[in-house]
Each structure stands twice: as structure tokens, then as C-alpha cells.
Design a protein around this nucleic acid. Structure first.
Lengths: 165, 165
DNA sequence: AAAAATAATTAGCAACACGAAATATTTTTA
DNA sequence: TAAAAATATTTCGTGTTGCTAATTATTTTT
């Protein structure tokens, strides 16, 4: 197996493990992943408007609105209308929400940190340099926006009846 | 910022970039991410029963069934009842499905590989060693299965009316 | 003041993800 | 061998996500 293949496998392994971990966390906290992510974004970036929150999370504004609806019903976040520009609405963590995040085993973080810090200094540096390298590469990747093909193109050739249900 | 913090940020950056990339790919291919992932799993592991597929993907069997329904309707996968054990159903990529995967810009892979291979040998080795280190750590992490708390516990203290809609 | 832009919500839709129940088949056990 | 238990998948019902388009309210531009 080539080195680049190995690297890809490892990256996918990391992503998969993180994903599993997130799912576990979600089960434990009783929140869905998008809900947790919303709260974390709010925690790290502080209160922000719905639009900004949507941009930060790479989601449509409407999607964020609906996630916030559910979080608000659970009293984990609050909404505050901006007094200067009344179109804007600020989303912010409630006290309960902040507490939940704090008490929740943010885990990846804490657990990871202790293991990471057990490494030698030189190794820590090496890992970071490498991660920067990988992040740099992946960030630079960009599929051509041009659609390569429509499913239709491929599927049509083999579909006869084309019945739905 | 501590080194472990940096590492975490970088990992999240990588995951995020990958995620964005996947979304783009999904848009281009006209399939959803779970659909693509199902086909990729089938491609890499060969035909497998629904149950195994579900385990491989860490999803409930019912979820996989419904994803397969949609892929089958598009003629990208087929179902085959096992002749020995008639409870089992084998999912397999159709020719169209295989072709789609092959023609699709295998995403991360191809683009990543060319950039990765542009690195010096020693750097490639370093990156792999580091990724192995990180994957090792993350894989070893495991939240206690014990639920830390229910939302109820936290939320109840501040909810009054508890009305729905 | 009218038109255009901006911010958020609503409405409607397809897909996903799950658990529980139903169905069919095989294996175990009594 | 007949009954019970286990296994494999699907069906059903529910809630969540994520999207676009349309709506509402408010600012900014013209």
C-alpha cells in the first residue's frame, strides 16, 4: 500500500472514530449532533445572530432556525432581538445550556489532551507539523463546481419503465 | 495555546474540510452522503448482507434498509436473497452503481494523493507516523457507557408549563 | 417615498435515523 | 418432532435534519 493510501486510511479512521465518539456523546447527553454542535459553536464564539451562526456551521439559515427552536423548547438557548437593528436575533446559551456543556464529558477534548500530553515534546511538535500539513492539503482541495454528471445520465441508460412507487 | 489544543483544532479543521468536501461531492453526484457512503462500503467490502452492512456503517438495520430502497430505485444497487439461508439478503452494487463510483471524482482520494506525493519521502513518513499516533489515541478513547445525565434532569429544574406547540 | 437589500421565520418536502412490531426462516431445546 | 428461541429483514410511526421558496419585518439605497 502506498504512503498516500495509508495516509487516507488513517484520516478516515480518525474521522470515523471521532464520529462514533460524537454519536456516543449525543446518546449520553440526550441531544442530537447538530444540536450539540450548535451549542458548542455558541459556546466558543459567544452569542451570535442566526445568520452568522448558520454561516459558521455551513448550514442554511432555515435549518439553524429549526434547530434553535428545539433547543429553545428545552431551555438550552435563548433568543434576543437586537434593539438597534430589529431584524437581527441573537442566539445565546442559557445558563442550563452552559452548564450542560460544562458537565458533559466534552470528552474528545479532555481525554485526548491527557493522552497527547503524555507524549514527548518532540513528538507533539511532529504531530502538529504533520496535522498542519494534512489540513493544508485538504483545505486546498476543491472539486470543480461543474457537475460531473447527473444520476439521470447514468441511470437512464439502464432504466426501462421508470416507474415511481 | 497549548500543543494539545492546537492538535485538536487541526483535527477538527481536517474533519470539517472533509465534511465540506463530501457535501460538494454529494451535490455533484446527485446522491446524498449516506447513499454514497453505502455504495462505497459496498465497493470496498464487496457484496454483503444488510445486517453486516449496517454494522459496518454503524447504523440501525432499518436505516440501511431505507437507504437501500432508494438506491435500488435508482438501479445503483441490487438485492439478492441468499439461497441457503433465506432470511439473508445480499446487497450488491449494480453495474451502473460501480460505474458511477468509478467515474465519480473519488473525492478526497485522487486529489489528495497527488498533493501528498509531492511531499518529500521523509515528510510523508513523518505524516504517517503522526497520523498513526493520533488515530491510536482517538481509537483508545471511550466514554463510559453510563449516561452522565438526562436532559430532563437539567431542564426540569427550569421548565414550568412544559407545553408542546 | 419607493425600491432594493437584509434578517429571520414559515411552509413544504425528501431523506435519515431510530426503536418497536411484524414476518419469515433457521436453530435450539425439550 | 413439535415448540420455543434466535436471527435477518422489513414495515411502521416518530422526530430531526437540511434544503428551497415564499413571507414578514426592518433597514438601507435610490
Amino acid at each position: 500500500m502506498s504512503k498516500s493510501q495509508s495516509a487516507l486510511v488513517l484520516i478516515r479512521q480518525i474521522i470515523r472514530a471521532t464520529d462514533l465518539h460524537d454519536k456516543q456523546l449525543s446518546r449520553v447527553s440526550g441531544l442530537t449532533l447538530p444540536q450539540l454542535l450548535t451549542m458548542q459553536t455558541l459556546h466558543e464564539g459567544g452569542s451570535m445572530t442566526i445568520g452568522l451562526l448558520a454561516r459558521e456551521m455551513n448550514l442554511a439559515q432555515a435549518t439553524v432556525t429549526s434547530i434553535l427552536d428545539r433547543l429553545e423548547k428545552k431551555q438550552l438557548v435563548g433568543r434576543l432581538r437586537d434593539s438597534h437593528d430589529k431584524r437581527k436575533v441573537w442566539a445565546c446559551l442559557s445558563e442550563t445550556g452552559t452548564r450542560l456543556l460544562a458537565e458533559s464529558p466534552t470528552s474528545l477534548q479532555d481525554l485526548f489532551i491527557s493522552k497527547f500530553e503524555a507524549m514527548e515534546q518532540w513528538e507533539q511538535s511532529m504531530v502538529i507539523t504533520s496535522l498542519e500539513r494534512v489540513a493544508g492539503i485538504i483545505n486546498a482541495l476543491d472539486i470543480d463546481a461543474a457537475p460531473v454528471f447527473d444520476i439521470g445520465d447514468l441511470a437512464r441508460s439502464s432504466i426501462d419503465g421508470e416507474k415511481h412507487d
